[in-house]
């Protein structure tokens, strides 16, 4: 099976890989690059655990071929913290106890970051609809929504 030479950036770092045609971006991240922070919950785009950004757009990495990533800028949960400083969203998820098992957390964080970059002052309803593609079976979403709203307040400098 021919492999494709694919180059892109991950969280700003230039990366090159050889990728099988049918491999998804999720496969590439987890299996080739060992960036296992991005999770696989369904591989059919229904759970959001594999959320990443591609050129700033929020997508399910399970629904994109690795070869399509050529030349793109990929953002994953591993890129949220800068050095030893957590992102405000990460701090707020901890402060509000917005996770139980934590498997959906990376996807929620990446999706929430994409939301706040686009809409720094979302209503609760906007947060809920934006995150509707991220399934959480533990929390009932309550504390997640609170954490995102609070992070938005802090990030606005309010």
């Amino acid at each position: 099976m021919a492999k494709h030479h694919v180059s892109f950036t991950i969280n700003g770092d230039p990366t090159e890989i050889l990728c099988e045609t049918h491999a998804t971006l999720l496969d590439v991240l987890r299996d080739e690059l060992e960036l296992t922070g991005t999770k696989e919950g369904c591989s059919t785009g229904d759970c959001g655990a594999c959320s990443v950004t591609v050129d700033g757009r929020l997508v399910c990495s399970c629904l994109m071929l690795g070869v399509e990533a050529n030349g793109k800028a990929i953002g994953t949960v591993e890129g949220l913290a800068k050095g030893d400083k957590l992102h405000v969203l990460q701090e707020k998820f901890l402060e509000h106890h917005a996770l139980q098992c934590g498997i959906c957390t990376p996807g929620f964080l990446v999706a929430s970051k994409a939301l706040l970059e686009k809409n720094p002052d979302p209503t609760e309803t906007e947060v809920r609809y934006w995150l509707a593609g991220n399934l959480c079976r533990c929390t009932g979403y309550d504390k997640i929504v609170r954490a995102v709203m609070d992070a938005a307040t802090v990030m606005r400098g309010a």
Binding site: T36, T38, L80, L86, F93, G102
Partner: peptide, 18 residues
Amino acid sequence: QRPDGVDKVTGRARFGAD
């Protein structure tokens, strides 16, 4: 804050498939 919190918000925490 929970002891395993930072690992779980940074993607470090290793689950079954990790």
